[in-house]
Design a protein around this nucleic acid. Sequence first.
DNA 1: TTAATATACGACCGATGTAGTCCACTTTCA
DNA 2: TGAAAGTGGACTACATCGGTCGTATATTAA
Lengths: 134, 134
Amino acid sequence: MIRLSKKVEYGLIAIRHIATKPAGEIVTAKEIADTYGIPYELLSKVLQKLTKSGLIASHQGMRGGYALARPPVEIPVSLIISAIEGTRQAIVQCLSEGPQTCTVFTVCTIKSPLTKVQANIERAFSTMNLSEIV
Amino acid sequence: MIRLSKKVEYGLIAIRHIATKPAGEIVTAKEIADTYGIPYELLSKVLQKLTKSGLIASHQGMRGGYALARPPVEIPVSLIISAIEGTRQAIVQCLSEGPQTCTVFTVCTIKSPLTKVQANIERAFSTMNLSEIV
DNA sequence: TTAATATACGACCGATGTAGTCCACTTTCA
DNA sequence: TGAAAGTGGACTACATCGGTCGTATATTAA
């Protein structure tokens, strides 16, 4: 019906893994990849995106790795998702991209009802934070 | 973040269009396609799927077309979506396809929290029926 | 200072899914 | 009987996804 990407799935698993460690402890991408059998390079990219959006902090070089950049309570699941999947914010094109790309925008009759559904889904993701999935 | 396909979008527009007509009135795919600028052949396929799942009834031959097969109140949006997108019922693979295809199934730590989100989304779609989007 | 270990990042590939098109067929009614 | 309608399979173009590869850069321990 509606699906989160593997990247998001890996991202959630990874950031949850980091969150289970004592605060400040650094975890390597390799450790996470090995633990869950996730392709290392792919996971790295995901972690880099999470880093860029400030959810986790990276430490380069030997004995480097990743740690949370804020307490778990301040990391809503919605942020994790949007950090990884930049675009695709809405369940239908018109809600996120508007008349430029949606071919039926002006005559579309389902925008307003879907806005409600959209809000519902967003609430589902934004009210749940990292501390609740640890 | 999460997106419905164009087919679903067209299906919602179409079935809503049918629902606005007096009960029992027959609407052709062409009329719908022309009204909303939707590719005719694509819309046809979508309507065929809605027919097969018993949400609308088709009438072949000249002066044929489509009409609702039940009152709008008995057509939840969730049924429209699953009729068109048969597969992909869950936000993550493991929730719909299980250990056969999910590579991290046994070690995945996010299944149970996501089940809650999943239920939330399903409720959003299943509690809204066609009569509410007309 | 150097080797090892780690992240950063762009290029690339194959599989899959999506949107759309084309065409032949069947059904029905005027 | 012919026009108008749905049925349905094959096909294409394109985007996205999942994954891989190679290289550069940063850090630290020896």
